[in-house]
Amino acid sequence: MLKYKEETRAITVSSGTACPPATATGETREAWRWTFNPFSDNCFLPVAKRNPMRLNRAEAAEEQCSCWALSMHRTDRESISAFQALERSFKRARQTLGTHLATAVIDASHGLSTAANAHGHFDLHPFRQVNFESVFKVVDAIPPARRRTEP
């Protein structure tokens, strides 16, 4: 059962847009997530729980829905690349998004995951009984961005 079933169902009912999306599945896949080390209480909370004050603009149903999911990437390379791109513009990204890379192989017992976008990002809508702190393992600190000359 979805951990945030009530909340996601409310989005489905109010917007008519399925949340989680109908295309979300329980496929077995590698997942990479930005966390702190050691894990903090917030590391596996969706942004709607972790930092609700940043959500005042999330009005589209898809956005609201995403706020109740955990952000992941398909590969470590995509995860690092996205973080570094953010950190180039937002110097304190580590303050809110995490400092380390954690990984796990997730499957149908962990939740429903959406299709990855062109940059490897996908959402995992977690199931209630899963303890993600024991599922995920911290691999390393996210390396700082190297200076690039081309956009």
Binding site: K91, H119, R147
Partner: peptide, 15 residues
């Protein structure tokens, strides 16, 4: 100064 973005803080497609 402490919040000034990097020299290569372009709006990359990935973000």
């Amino acid at each position: 100064e402490e919040y000034l973005p990097d020299h290569d803080s372009y709006l990359e497609d990935s973000i």
